[in-house]
Amino acid sequence: MNHLIVYAHPRKESFNHAILETTVRSLQEKGHEVVVRDLYAMEFQAVISSSEILGGIGEDIEQEQEYLKWADVITFIYPIWWTGLPAIVKGYIERVFTYGFAYRYVNGEQKGLLKGKKVAIINTQGKSHDQYAAIGMDKALLLTSDKGIFEYCGLEVLHHIFFESVPSSDEMTRTAWLKQLEELIGKA
C-alpha cells in the first residue's frame, strides 16, 4: 500500500521524530511504499492567500494533492500545541484540503471527496490523558480533527493515538510507546 506521512515538528531530537522514524521503518519492513512530507523541513507556507480562497492553487499545492491522491493511507504525526494542531498543520489542511478536491457541497449537502482513503493520527501532548479528560479536551480533540476535518473529507479514521505527558516521560516509557506503535503498524 501507499503511505503518505505528513509530519510536523521542528526538532530532529524530538519524540515526534522518533515516532516518525519508527513509523517509516515499520511500514517499509512490511513492504509498503512510504513518502514523508516534513512540513518544517519543506518550510511549508501555512498562510492561505486570498487567491487560494477563491480557488486558485499553485504548483506547490497541486503537488501535495497528488501525494494525497497517490496515498491509500495518510498518517499525520504532530504534537498538540495550545490544545490543537500546530499552525503549520492547520495551514497544510487549509491550503491542501481544498473545496472541490477534499470536499464539496451538492444540493446543500456536504460530500467528502477522499472516500476510500484512510487516515491515522499520532499526537504527543504535554498533559496526561486524565488532565485532558477532566476538562473534556480529549473529546474536543477527536471532534475537531477526526470528525471536523478527516471524516468531513471522507477519510476513514484508522486510529488516533495520543502519547501523554511526553516532556516528563522517561526513556523506558518512550521505548515502550515506540514498541506499541511498531506492533500496531505490524497489524496493518
Rank of each mutant, 00 (worst) to 15 (best):
W82P: 09
T98Y: 03
Y152A: 08
G55P: 06
W82Y: 13
G84A: 10
G136Q: 03
I57L: 02
G84I: 13
K115A: 08
N107S: 15
F101L: 01
K12P: 01
E183Q: 15
I5F: 08
V47T: 07
V24D: 04
K117V: 07
E109N: 07
H17E: 00
I80C: 09
E156F: 08
N16A: 06
S14T: 07
F97W: 05
E109F: 11
K147D: 12
K179D: 15
D60F: 12
K118I: 05
A133G: 11
E33R: 08
E183N: 15
A18G: 02
F162C: 03
N107W: 12
Q28D: 00
G116D: 07
F97D: 02
D38Q: 08
I149V: 15
E59G: 14
Q131T: 14
V89M: 14
D72V: 12
G100R: 00
V47Q: 06
V89G: 10
M42W: 06
V89E: 10
V119L: 08
H32T: 00
G91S: 10
W81Y: 15
T75Q: 14
L39W: 06
Y7N: 12
P86Q: 11
A133T: 12
S50R: 14
F163C: 01
R11M: 04
K187Q: 11
Y152C: 06
P79L: 10
G91W: 11
S168K: 10
I74C: 11
D72Q: 15
T175D: 14
S165D: 12
E156H: 11
E94G: 09
G148S: 10
E151W: 07
R174E: 14
A41W: 02
A87P: 09
G116R: 03
Q131M: 13
F15C: 02
Q63D: 13
Y103F: 15
E62W: 03
Y78W: 15
K127H: 10
V119Y: 05
A120R: 15
A133E: 14
K117C: 01
S168E: 13
E13G: 04
S14A: 13
Q110N: 12
I80A: 01
L20I: 10
R25A: 11
L178E: 14
F163V: 05
K147V: 13
G116I: 09
L113K: 10
K118Y: 09
F162Y: 12
F97C: 06
T83F: 14
F15R: 01
S26P: 00
R11H: 07
A176I: 11
S49I: 05
I53E: 12
Q65I: 07
V36Q: 03
V119K: 03
